[in-house]
């Protein structure tokens, strides 16, 4: 049964693609063997379903009339230029990149789409006869349950609904962003009437598709300002630290060495964003880091360590 369906759909595609002009439905019924033997009602239903299936696969079936022959009867066609992948050429280094790209997605559905895109490249005359880059294993995973629905919504330009911060939202997805292993969605939140950024891991419950495909257009530079919110805050202050030689490299790598040294201690000037995580960053250095100035920062780090000892029931 599946074989007969595939056969009919491929033959319909070829018939529409090779016709010089619009072809009427009745003519297609004659041309495509898979339609023979169906009564009118079944043929009509089958033909509509076939068109939908092909369009969903990206086959551009156009409707129109050829004035000369059937003034009042609609016909169908596929323009070759709309159907065919334009010529592509890739050098050996580029083919190696493409072959490596086949292994990147860990999500079955997207991995399949990637494979299908690649087979189109190979069908276009590019030979995948080059080994993948053995020394590179980039993987992208998306473990967040919300991910697949949001990806589908984004490709189809459909609205989604979900709960975030205990509030029901209706959102037009603009961009999915993967940063440091977590996925974010930037989009227009209809409920709030403003663009918003959502962390997928914090979406509560299910995400549902709603409304029709193609319900909105992507902005030209989608959500640039929103995504800038994911960047680290810019430094607006400088601290003077004493750090034991060779310790706390996560601090010293973004600091500048100051000439004066005392034994195993080196002095560093560290630019930091106030209101950021500088206290946590310094505290992680334990006894290898001391804050010389500013006094408020020195006090904050001291309070941080005192609270740790107090919480875990140890007297300082």
């Amino acid at each position: 049964m599946e074989r007969r369906t595939s056969e009919r759909l491929v033959n319909l595609t070829i018939a529409l693609l090779t016709a010089r002009t619009f072809t009427s439905k009745d003519r297609l019924r004659d041309l495509v063997e898979g339609y023979h033997g169906l009564n009118n009602e079944n043929f009509d239903r089958q033909f509509e379903r076939d068109k939908d299936t092909l369009r969903a696969l990206g086959v551009p079936i156009e409707t129109g009339t050829d004035e000369r022959y059937f003034a009042d009867e609609p016909g169908y066609r596929i323009r070759r230029d709309d159907f065919e992948l334009p010529p592509l050429s890739f050098g050996p280094a580029e083919v190696a990149v493409l072959v490596t790209a086949a292994q990147v997605w860990q999500q079955a559905s997207v991995a399949e789409s990637t494979t299908r895109a690649l087979t189109k490249v190979w069908a276009s005359g590019v030979e995948p006869d080059i080994d993948r880059l053995g020394a590179l294993r980039p993987h992208i995973s998306a473990r967040e349950p919300a991910w697949q629905t949001l990806w589908d919504a984004l490709q189809a330009r459909r609205y989604v609904t979900f709960t975030y911060h205990n509030m029901a939202r209706r959102v037009a997805p603009f961009v999915l962003a993967y940063r440091h292993g977590a996925w974010y969605l930037a989009g227009f939140d209809d409920t709030r009437g403003a663009p918003r950024l959502f962390k997928l891991g914090r979406i509560q419950g299910e995400v549902s598709l709603t409304g029709e495909p193609g319900a909105y257009e992507l902005p030209a530079t989608p959500a640039t300002e929103l995504l800038a919110g994911l960047e680290e805050a810019q430094p607006d202050a400088t601290a003077l630290l004493a750090v034991r030689s060779g310790r706390a490299p996560w601090l010293t790598r973004r600091a500048e060495l100051v000439a004066q040294a005392e034994g195993e201690w080196r002095r560093w000037q560290l630019p930091y964003a106030s209101g950021g995580a500088v206290v946590d960053d310094i505290a992680m250095g334990g006894a290898d880091v001391r804050v010389i100035e500013p006094a408020e920062l020195a006090e904050a780090v001291k309070a941080h360590h005192q609270a740790l000892l107090a919480n875990l029931g140890v007297t300082p």
Partner: peptide
């Protein structure tokens, strides 16, 4: 009767480009 493959769907194009970006 077919000499060229069908164009990429949006989903295919985005999936492949993002995979290549990961390689880059």
């Amino acid at each position: 009767p077919l000499t060229r493959p069908l164009r990429f769907t949006r989903d295919e194009a985005v999936s492949l480009i993002v995979a290549v970006e990961a390689v880059r």
